[in-house]
Nucleic acid binder design. Structure first.
Length: 115
DNA sequence: GTCATGACAAAGA
DNA sequence: TTCTTTGCCATGA
């Protein structure tokens, strides 16, 4: 039913935000992992782009828990401060050095694995 | 309506 | 091995 729905009622972005919000505290996820979960393995680029708009999305999206496949905080420059992302992650118990997450495999969270 | 860009990742040369 | 190219979907000019 529903009155109707536009072509982009739930776009790729919505799925990205939804997954990111599900990331548990103290865990992190990668762009490629999310993209893979959405079915677009090569759409990792889109995931990062989605985060670009995440700041204005509600509820808030823990974009600081999303990093690239190297565990590097590539998106930290998009935060209010250069160390906001790292600080937020460290606060959750994640060790970061040189903008790289240490023991990434121990902190990684895979939506596919969870579901 | 078309072109260019964007917080990535994997394959090819 | 590193460097280059392609793919993904959406947004903005």
């Amino acid at each position: 039913m529903n009155t109707k729905k536009s072509s982009t009622d739930y776009s790729f972005f919505e799925n990205v935000y939804d997954v990111v919000r599900k990331i548990p505290k103290g865990k992190v996820c990668t762009y490629g992992l999310i993209a893979n979960y959405l079915g677009s393995k090569q759409g990792a680029r889109m995931v990062g782009w989605a985060m670009n708009g995440a700041h204005q999305i509600k509820p808030k999206v823990p974009a600081h828990r999303v990093v690239n496949r190297n565990g590097m905080l590539t998106g930290k420059h998009h935060f209010e401060t250069n160390n906001a992302m790292q600080k937020a992650l460290e606060k959750e118990g994640i060790i970061i050095k040189d903008d790289i997450i240490q023991n990434l495999e121990k902190h990684i969270w895979d939506p596919l694995m969870k579901l």
